[in-house]
Design a binder for these strands. Structure first.
Lengths: 231, 231
DNA sequence: TACAGTTGGTTTGCATGCACCGTATACAGG
DNA sequence: CCTGTATACGGTGCATGCAAACCAACTGTA
């Protein structure tokens, strides 16, 4: 589970998050407070508040007065915008991390990269998705910018669902084993290169590599996207 | 008023936003639901929801269970992080705008720049702050990235308060007239240069100039900041 | 005096109920 | 048959009330 420290199954918000992103709801479906309330066994109030919070973070659309909120449908265009948005933020995180260059952050990133490397070859391993997520979360943390970290937390959680959880329930791309392993190896290599730039306090390089990494990853994750132009 | 189209004085959220950022509350002060509710003449529920929305957007801190929310205090370190965060996002917006290069967006940006130019010399003019804000909002819009626009809306509103409204009520820096006019002229020139890069579809240049513009602007707005290293 | 338990006040979390708004449907008029 | 209007229904916005949790001061005992 991404950011397991902040996920509390007893909180209505997290249960609603899971409900929306685990495929239980159709894309673009309206979130009816009363229905969700009885489905979760609580009153409408905590549902209302959670929905408004998700709206504020862009995880839902709509929300005009008396209009209610709807789930996103994640069309190719939306996924592309999501990916663009993430590239901007995470590139910036890498840049800031390279400027602050904290010894503990580097150790943490190195450890995560090593752990990830052990998982290369386990195609479909949940631990792989978990570790990949944790690496990017650690990268955000290394920026030492509270606002950026805050935004990235929600963004990464969303990407985790959109890129890993969501697609598995609709159609799995059925990648060949060799290709999958090659991709995983490339991801580990990319991560290592980004960390190295941060270690050398190369802000421009760190940002460039982080963006490139996400461009390739995002492109293959959302294979529907047309040719990925360089950002 | 920033983003006047989205600001509705009848909505509790906007009134609360004004209350928090107009200096009526001390930095770091706790937002007590009951007190705010009777102060705004509504019940606790809409206050609760608005507070949770502001928390989700990082406009307030705290919010753990039974902990309540507090206003930010905007220490120099926080202002610096806010400014860094904005540079990342707005630089990205300029980059995307240069990639999409929409004729209407360019016309809108040009018009706003011209309007702004007319205000050079009117030091302290509210119209200046308004137009500056609208220019940056238009820049965000020109990115054509819904997520980025959404985040930038709230971020710009916050910056508007932190950089323009908030300081006026504590201590005004008392800039000399000549310096003030020079600064305003520089802002207009910067804006024009950014638009020009977008027009030429120069993504790297647009991003670089937008970042540089915000670095200088942010540095002088938060004059407490130590030497602004290049981002 | 020091410390632990208790107790009252304050604040948040949540359930219930009612009022308002938007939309679809049925009906009357042209 | 088409169009404008009234009305019923689904759904959200909000007020009220109660229970749980936190905090601080008070008190009793060692």
């Amino acid at each position: 589970m991404p950011f397991s420290k902040t996920v509390d199954e007893s909180r209505v918000y997290d249960r609603l998050l899971k409900l929306v992103f685990s495929g239980s709801m159709a894309p673009g479906e309206r979130l009816v407070e009363r229905r969700l309330a009885e489905q979760l066994g609580v009153s409408r109030i905590p549902v209302r508040e959670s929905v408004r919070e998700m709206l504020a973070q862009g995880l839902l659309v709509g929300g005009d007065k008396w209009a209610g909120a709807c789930t996103r449908n994640y069309t190719p265009a939306e996924v592309r915008q999501l990916s663009e948005y993430r590239r901007i933020l995470e590139g910036g995180a890498a840049r800031l991390a390279a400027r602050h260059t904290d010894r503990n952050d580097l150790a943490h990133l190195d450890r995560l990269r090593e752990e990830t490397e052990k998982e290369v070859g386990n195609y479909g391993s949940p631990r792989w998705a978990q570790l990949d997520h944790e690496f990017h979360a650690a990268l955000a943390q290394a920026s030492h910018n509270e606002r950026l970290i805050h935004t990235m937390q929600h963004l990464l959680a969303e990407c985790h669902y959109v890129f890993y959880v969501y697609p598995r329930q609709q159609r799995r791309p059925e990648l060949s084993y060799a290709d999958a392993v090659a991709q995983m190896a490339r991801v580990v290599k990319d991560h290592g290169a980004i960390v190295e730039r941060i270690r050398q306090a190369d802000a421009d390089g760190a940002e460039r590599l982080a963006r490139a990494h996400l461009l390739v990853t995002g492109r293959q994750a959302a294979s529907d996207l047309a040719g990925g132009e360089e950002l």
